[in-house]
Amino acid sequence: MLTSSLTARFSKALICLGALLAAGSILAADAVRYTPVPNSSKLRMDGTSTIHDWHADTDIIGGFMELEATFADGKSAPVSVKPTIAVKIPVRSLKSSGGKRMDAVMQEHMKFEQFKVIEYRVLELTPKAGAAAGQYEAKGALTLAGVTKTNMMPVTIERVDGKLKVTGTTAVKMTDHGIKPPAPEIAGISLIRTGDEVKLKFEWVTEPKAP
């Protein structure tokens, strides 16, 4: 009888675990899931060319974060964590300062038809030594045009009105992700060559997801 009771409870636990796995994540007991707040975030991609500087903007930064409830609360000492942070940015939402035609050029070079989103996963968050509270080094995996590269990026994570705001800047080389920098032609002449390096500056606002 004891054995069958244990078996029943074990089976029940297995079923619950399976349900959680099916839901896509297993939250630690005190973990909180944060989801993006609409119309509150922004990302700017700054680039250069032989003719003029350019930029592309979006305010759609999707994804989620799962962090301990005490994370960045200003009370607990910051520690290195391996959080679950996944970011997705639709390539189509990036709008260039060069207008519609430059958007089309950008989408073509980022292989939009095949890879519709830019993805970023945080692998590790480490508090920056000697820095103010909320400053971290994020080790992450950035996927552009289907090619994934890891990088290190300083970020600031702070609580603002109950929300978590993540800000940061990083430099990325297009060629590292297999993207050939665009070189549009004018009157049959390749006068414009886009610079390989772009700077990504972002501000991502998330809020605790209602249970």
Partner: peptide, 12 residues
């Protein structure tokens, strides 16, 4: 159309 698709895929 693109903006609606991207927005509804990302937010509520």
């Amino acid at each position: 159309v693109g903006a609606v698709e991207d927005f509804t895929a990302t937010f509520d």
